[in-house]
Design a protein around this nucleic acid. Structure first.
Lengths: 419, 419
DNA sequence: GCAATTTGTTCAGTGGTTGAATTAAATGAC
DNA sequence: GTCATTTAATTCAACCACTGAACAAATTGC
């Protein structure tokens, strides 16, 4: 078994899409499983056959395989239709494979387990200031938390099919964390440091550990938990830095080298404040956590990172004028940057996540105002701006969901496992 | 036969990827054909088998079908290898299907024919000021030019499998031109107006006419003609408006509604000059043709649109200080916007196209300067900024190439045609 | 001239889909 | 309460396209 450490979603089949004899079944397993996953009510075999164009015979055979592999179960209270033999509804199994989502952040560690149906079965958080901790120690503690989550999953009869770790920084393909400024990490080889701690069962085709940018996985979490229908959106994670996950047509876009989403350094005032990146007038200097805290008169308060947002929200709710102005200005800067992005990418939804989620009531109006002023097509069809459905849990949940999604997209790897 | 007018590349198979018996062959036809198309020297059947993982027997059978359908031919001077029976090289046929690319622009009409190998076989241009002409008349003249191109293609033994029309404006799916400000078009139903003029043979799976934004098709042209390897890039078409085509991982990204690429209205000076879009400080007001001409002291010269760029280039070459300053400023504004885009999308290449292509010697330095100042990852891996390989012909060639690409991606539609 | 080598084809075998017939399980009319 | 009707799911022979091995073809090198 070759360990497959990787960052991106590259499925690099060297055979480049050639369809061999067995691929036929492999592909149809995925088609049927996806159909069951996407349906809003448990579909019948016949319904799947009608929807996909496959024969009922084929669907039956495929479903048999899926049930035998504990990926699908029959919903017992059969959904009533009308005349005729009642259909047996098919649902994703809730006792089969599951995904493990992990997160290392400035002041907490998180681990969560998501099953095939998308339900968050467990969610563990350990608060701790990780800035003074060495990467090796931080990952050691993460591994302990992961083991706890895994034990809980096993008690439920679940099998972890893979893990995904969210890190607030630039991650190389291969899982090398190039730079995580707020953690103080540089060139940390996460897979190597976690090598002694098995996180998940080996499943063919699913990497045992994927390391990815926090903003990317948070966007996946939002894709997973958010309202259906929005398949192209920008998920903005507002923390000390500002990151964005870009989901286009339902798939996360990672960029040529996996470093997309650096929305924090979009220029919003080209001759404005100098930024640590070397540029000038970057969004981060106007809508980043430090800038907002300073404008609200809380500079140097040295709040834990995740309480800064709730503190600002409290002040805003209380009507503190400095805070309200600070949020309005930040929202305007954010709106300018977002308007540019929407003009460029023609997105229909913008999600305010991370620290922006609790501040959405105050950030949303100026963002919406800038969008409607500046986006050419806003008149034809409006852009939705909404807070993240999952809030701070997005990244860990998104990571776990990305594992589950891998199983759904290519179930044959899982089925090959247990014979 | 249902006419399939469409704008986007939506292949909306209602069966959602289900793999039926025959799809096996269908998919492998595409795999093998793509392999032949992508190879830099004519591959052998055995080489394709080794590369794809298919059996030599299967590849032979597939190739037989492709040759019978005039999509592939055997290269006669067989490429020498070493010992063993010499391989028979396979190349794309140059007498099979071809694509028709059309363009309506402010002061010219164009039609071009690209064959399967990607060679531009014919390229016709009619210069004419189309602003005073009604859409119906303009399209009538375009149809005449298209008929000419088609006749030339038929004389070569080619069969036009589809057509793509580039328009400088917002195009709805369905081919409705919502707004083409510089042509003075609004809600022009192009497919309806061209309905009387058959442009191409009906081929299953290929729409007889695709209408798309000029910038999008120009980006496809660049993908087609540019150096291989750059699969994620931004192609900027600088005219009166500024448009961009976004190619991500080798596929054109069109946005949720098909209106992506409005880079001209990215804010570069949020409190700057008011723009006709209603916003303020849009890129177009600093790097658009009118802005540059005005800054160079040529305001109101009323030059034909396509000569403005060459005129500016002449002045710059002659060392005219006003022009040099104007271009430097435009380049800086462009660089600010592009830096934001590159930070967001992690692109490795930026192509200066349209009117920017001849001005690249003067625009490139400030653009590169802003990128290296402002792009976070520029230090790790540089961003290439280069002029468009095709220049003004990009859009028509790109349209024609997009038709050809459709045939390569799904050859079964073409093969079903001639029995 | 002959062994070695590689390409391409032929052919029986097989996996997985197909389509029709069959069985299963309900509703509704009389 | 029985039976025609309706829809769901399964069974089975047929078939299509890929597989693997054997074979024929064409060239190099000794």
């Amino acid at each position: 078994m070759t360990a497959l450490w990787q960052c991106q979603g590259v499925t690099s089949t060297s055979t480049a899409g050639a369809v061999r004899q067995g691929s036929l079944r492999e592909l149809n397993l995925a088609v049927v499983l996806r159909r069951i996953a996407a349906a809003d009510r448990p579909p019948s075999r016949a319904g799947i056959a009608a929807g996909t164009g496959l024969t009922r015979a084929t669907v039956s055979a495929v479903v048999d395989d899926l049930i035998a592999g504990r990926l699908v179960a029959e919903a017992e209270p059969a959904p009533r239709t009308g005349a005729g033999r009642p259909a047996r509804g098919l649902v994703l199994a809730s006792d089969g494979p599951a995904g493990l989502g992990l997160e290392v952040n400035v002041d907490y560690l998180a681990a969560c387990v998501v099953d095939l149906t998308g339900t968050v079965r467990h969610h563990l958080v350990r608060r701790a200031d990780l800035r003074p901790v060495s990467p090796a120690d931080a990952l050691e503690r993460l591994a302990a938390l992961a083991a706890e989550a895994r034990a809980a999953a096993v008690r439920d009869g679940l099998t972890l099919a893979g893990a995904a770790l969210a890190v607030p920084g630039l991650v190389d393909s291969g899982g090398l964390v190039r730079l995580a400024p707020n953690l103080g990490w540089r060139d940390v080889d996460v897979p190597a440091l976690l090598a002694g701690h098995p996180l998940a069962e080996p499943v063919e085709g699913i990497p045992p550990l994927v390391v990815d940018n926090e903003a990317n996985l948070a966007a996946l979490g939002e894709l997973h938990a958010g309202p259906p229908g929005s398949t192209s959106f920008l998920h903005i994670t507002g923390e000390i830095g500002i990151g964005a996950g870009i989901v286009l047509d339902g798939v996360l876009y990672r960029g040529a080298r996996g470093w997309s989403g650096e929305i924090g350094h979009i220029p919003v005032q080209p001759q404005g404040r100098p930024c640590r990146c070397g540029g000038q007038g970057c969004l981060e200097r106007y809508a980043g956590q430090e800038a907002v805290l300073a404008a609200a008169g809380l500079a140097g308060a040295d709040l834990p990172a995740d309480t800064a947002a709730t503190r600002l929200a409290d002040l805003a709710r209380a009507g503190d004028p400095a805070t309200l102005t600070a949020l309005a200005d930040a929202g305007t800067a954010l709106g300018v940057a977002v308007a540019g992005v929407v003009n460029l990418l023609d997105l229909d939804t913008v999600v305010l996540g991370g620290g922006y989620a609790p501040l959405a009531p105050w950030l949303r109006p100026p963002v919406v105002a800038e969008i409607s002023r500046r986006v050419l097509t806003a008149a034809w069809s409006p852009v939705t701006v909404r807070p993240a459905a999952l809030g701070a849990r997005s990244a860990a949940v998104g990571g776990a969901a990305s594992v589950v999604r891998r199983v759904v997209d290519r179930p044959v790897g899982w089925l090959a496992r247990s014979g």
